[in-house]
Design a protein around this nucleic acid. Structure first.
Length: 370
DNA sequence: AAAACGGGGCA
DNA sequence: TGCCCAGTTTT
């Protein structure tokens, strides 16, 4: 029995067939699920996937949607460039391929947000074409099976793994094999405490033979992350309609690109002076909320939230000067959208970065307790 | 606090 | 081609 034979036999008995994107398989559904799965676990993705498909059932509908709406549905999934790429690619498929998902590797691979592995997965799963994949799960299986040392982020290691992945890829039952490899990495050949007794490849696995499963894959070299500090200025406005927090839309690229967030003040700046410049006067009340750390791959972001208010006002419109190059909105704190984490689980109407959503949720819960 | 995850984009 | 960038969850 070959490598792929063992994997396929295992798949027959152990495959998951109940996942949403495994029903009514279309290239579009496979594409969206693969992009979501790039960064998130199956359990989280299923909810997002269902909501996404309900709103954008076809490529055409996605292409016709506003990016804002796509980002809103992506809110909390992270790596928002993927949502932007998904939307952009849908536009390309609409314009160039008449809404039909392309079925050649080069065409699929050249779409924004689709790299070599994702292209291979889509073509294998949706079209039954023979292509190798090399996602995190497969990397783990292969580095262990062949005891490949070295961080897979290194080009030399990656090239080796791709060659091995290609060599193992069978010529038949490609969709099953592709799914099986991902499932195997996700459920058996796990990062910690792999379930080797249940693994179809244990007899040929070099790492298993040496009891070195946890040595592979080699970890990314450590780097001490720089720390950046920012002040989230949470401008609160209260009137007879309730409480509102000022959000502004971030630039399309960079951190939390295109998402809505709080205005940010440099930590060394004087808050009152900043407010005067930005809003025309210093706030009447300033409350420092507990700071917290949000960690990205390349740096820590220490967030110091400050709640500022100018007191009650009768006016519907916020009366202060808002000097901003950005679009701003008043987020209703006491509306249904602020009930996340509570009994009502509404869709976020806006794309919000995780720390922003967290702060909004905390404030709305504080409000409801009072 | 560390680790994991796939791809884009730019020198 | 080699580097840096980007968010969140899990461990």
């Amino acid at each position: 029995m070959t490598f792929s034979d063992h994997v396929l036999v295992w798949h027959k008995k152990n495959a998951r067939r109940d996942l949403p994107w495994q029903q009514a398989v279309t290239p579009y559904r496979v594409w969206v699920s693969e992009v979501m799965l790039q960064q998130t676990q199956v359990a989280t993705v299923t909810d997002y996937f269902e909501r996404f498909m309900a709103r954008f059932p076809t490529v055409r509908r996605l292409a016709a949607a506003e990016l804002d709406e796509v980002l809103a549905l992506w809110s909390g999934l992270g790596y928002y460039a993927r949502a932007r790429n998904l939307h952009k690619a849908a536009g390309i498929i609409h314009a160039r391929y008449d809404d039909r998902f392309p079925d050649t590797f080069d065409a699929v691979h050249s779409l924004p947000g689709i790299g070599r592995s994702t292209a291979g997965a889509i073509l294998a799963l949706a079209f039954g074409q023979r292509h190798a994949i090399l996602d995190g799960n497969v990397k783990r299986v292969l580095t262990r099976h062949h005891a490949i040392a070295g961080w897979p982020g290194e080009t030399a290691v990656s090239n080796r793994l791709w060659a091995i992945a290609e060599a193992h890829t069978p010529h038949r039952r490609i969709a099953q094999y592709t799914q099986a490899m991902m499932d195997l990495g996700a459920t058996v050949c796990t990062r910690t405490r792999p379930a080797c007794p249940h693994c179809p490849l244990r007899e040929s696995c070099l790492a298993h033979a040496n009891g070195e499963q946890e040595r592979f894959p080699t970890k990314r070299p450590k780097k001490t992350l720089p720390v950046r500090v920012t002040i989230f200025v949470m401008v609160m406005h209260q009137d007879k309609h309730g409480r509102f927090l000022l959000l502004e839309k971030r630039p399309a690229t960079g951190i939390w690109g295109g998402l809505w967030s709080f205005p940010e003040c440099a930590p060394e700046a004087d808050l009152d002076a900043w407010c005067v410049e930005r809003f025309g006067s210093a706030p009447n009340s300033v409350a420092h909320l507990p700071p917290f750390r949000h960690t990205f791959t390349h740096f820590h972001l220490d967030i110091r939230p400050v709640l500022v208010a100018w007191g009650e006002t009768q006016r519907q419109e916020f009366p202060y000067i808002m000097i901003s190059a950005r679009e701003t909105i008043w987020y209703p704190l006491d509306g249904e959208t602020s009930m996340k984490g509570g009994a009502v689980s509404e869709l976020p109407l806006l794309g919000l970065a995780a720390p922003v959503e967290r702060l909004l949720g905390e404030l709305s819960r504080m409000e409801r307790r009072v």
